[in-house]
Design a protein around this nucleic acid. Sequence first.
DNA 1: GCCTATATCAACATCGATGTAAATTAGGCG
DNA 2: CGCCTAATTTACATCGATGTTGATATAGGC
Lengths: 204, 204
Amino acid sequence: MSIGETGAEAGRPKRRRRTPDEARGEAIVAARRLLIDSGPTAITLKAVAGQIGVTHANLIHHFGSAAGLQSALMGSMVRDLTDALGETVALLRSEAGAPRAVTDSVFDAFEKGGAGRLAAWIVLSGDLKHLEPVRAAVQDLVNAIHERMAEGEATRHRITGAVLFIALCAFGDAVIGGPLRDMLGRDEDSARRIVARLLPTFLL
Amino acid sequence: MSIGETGAEAGRPKRRRRTPDEARGEAIVAARRLLIDSGPTAITLKAVAGQIGVTHANLIHHFGSAAGLQSALMGSMVRDLTDALGETVALLRSEAGAPRAVTDSVFDAFEKGGAGRLAAWIVLSGDLKHLEPVRAAVQDLVNAIHERMAEGEATRHRITGAVLFIALCAFGDAVIGGPLRDMLGRDEDSARRIVARLLPTFLL
DNA sequence: GCCTATATCAACATCGATGTAAATTAGGCG
DNA sequence: CGCCTAATTTACATCGATGTTGATATAGGC
């Protein structure tokens, strides 16, 4: 009944030997799932190990320590977040950069894989250094919008304002959007619609 | 050198006997400080006890358990948040409900005493029931805005949209506003200015 | 001034998370 | 096929957080 047990077949080897990359990858996927489902405190060596059918000592072997696992998890999720923001940049550099499409792209970036929740955890924990890769992604976003706008039409200051605005809303929506929309009787898509509508007012 | 030791005067009683309310109050103040300064994981019985010069067993006596202390802390901070939102309602019912004043009021509500960070912690932990008192405060806010607007000028749907918008931004700013503004080179007041400027567009 | 209720403490017990050391085995390579 | 590296496990050690118990002292009431 426990997670690692898939049955009583005797033919399977008792131990499965993974490459270090496989082992780390599986562990991080499991840890991410635990973070999203049960919160930061659920990310324990034994819990992660149980999810992928290894022992907690094995995780220490691959990550050095529990802090090493947490750090790797943060790095992985921050990488996903910056990748997703990179897709927004690509969108803006193509022709399809309509307000609603850009909004969806940024909101998805914070929602996918629990990136917004992770960022909240990082800030609450005080490990701000893990957010450093996001800085470049955010600045790329500013640059992409700048390129797209006609000369002088939108100053850099207006653009950073727009990015601050959309990022705050996307982050907030990813973390407390659910409960808040419920309190207000608003549907799932409300925040995105509002942001998409307001976005053009920054660039006029 | 330990925290409780202020010197070698002999006249002071070795034990200070507090009323239960005093003891609980001091503990919650200390716990809140620990949450803001060092994150949720820093709120341990020993740490809180050390801050106020008692033993951890004493905290268990007053709160029943560690979970009881956490729950009391959440209740206290949620009460402060709802009180602060109540002040926004009062502001709206007076004559001074200018967009900037309302914006400041809501942003302060999420920033004061770490209310925004606490809300993030509650959501990440999954203890959504602790947020229940906020529901009424948020709905009061909707009602207050509704009263203030001329008949039919702003539908209830537009108002809930405005509240969702301002709450998301205020929450986001309270949690990741600092790092994000730093990445963008924006000053402390940026988000509030933006929100105050956009707020009227909801009600026209 | 004494008595009582209880706030407080010291010492102990427990439990889970983390970490360590040594044995075991999977799987590649000669 | 047999060997060797290292991924994996088992067993043990540690540490901190939580909880329990019985003793102690303090403040208010008589």
